[in-house]
């Protein structure tokens, strides 16, 4: 029987076992790369270099290819998210209903641009292309929880609530 040496788990963090589980489920097939990266991101919140190296070695995918996949898809993040994440939808329906004003408000309050995290690591600001609740645009997600028919004032209120904690 062919014995393929797989790299050891990067640490004894239990979450790596979930990642290994995904790869095992797909028989360590190369085409499980995206599925595995999804598991890493959902377990750790982002993908760092050791994680990408581990996944690439385990699936015998060139590191360059794994890195290429990570940077190609918007869903994957190379930076750790802040304690809270505010995601503003920039789909067409949201745009027509003024989601650019929401982004401007968030940028003004947090002093960061979309894709960045405040220096204290408290809040990340992100944008997304349509979450599919266009009927109640504009939409924003606060820590993944959907808030519809958003207004700049309400957005500011939610961000303030986070800071007050």
């Amino acid at each position: 029987m062919l014995y393929v040496e797989r790299p050891p788990l990067p640490s004894d963090d239990k979450r790596w076992r979930i990642v290994s589980g995904t790869m095992r489920k797909h028989g360590y097939s190369r085409n499980a790369l995206i599925e595995t990266l999804h598991t890493v991101q959902s377990s750790f919140g982002y993908l760092d270099e050791p994680a990408i190296r581990f996944v690439a070695q385990s699936l015998r995918v060139p590191l360059s290819q794994a890195y290429g996949v990570v940077t190609f898809y918007h869903f994957f993040s190379l930076k750790p998210p802040g304690k809270h994440t505010c995601t503003i939808c920039l789909g067409t329906a949201c745009y027509i209903k003024g989601s650019d004003k929401l982004v401007a408000e968030a940028e003004k309050l947090l002093h960061i641009r979309p894709g960045e995290t405040t220096p204290d690591g408290e809040v990340s600001l992100a944008t997304v292309r349509c979450v599919g609740d266009c009927g109640r645009a504009p939409v924003a997600l606060f820590d993944g929880e959907l808030s519809a028919q958003m207004e700049p004032a309400r957005l500011a209120q939610r961000l303030d609530d986070w800071r007050a904690q």
Binding site: N31, A32, E35, H38, G68, Y73, F75
Partner: peptide
Amino acid sequence: IRLGAGAFVCGEETALIASIEGKRG
């Protein structure tokens, strides 16, 4: 089920196939 990862171009059939194969779309 295969999950997309936020790339509009993956709606194009050949790109979608590449994505299911675990590659860049």
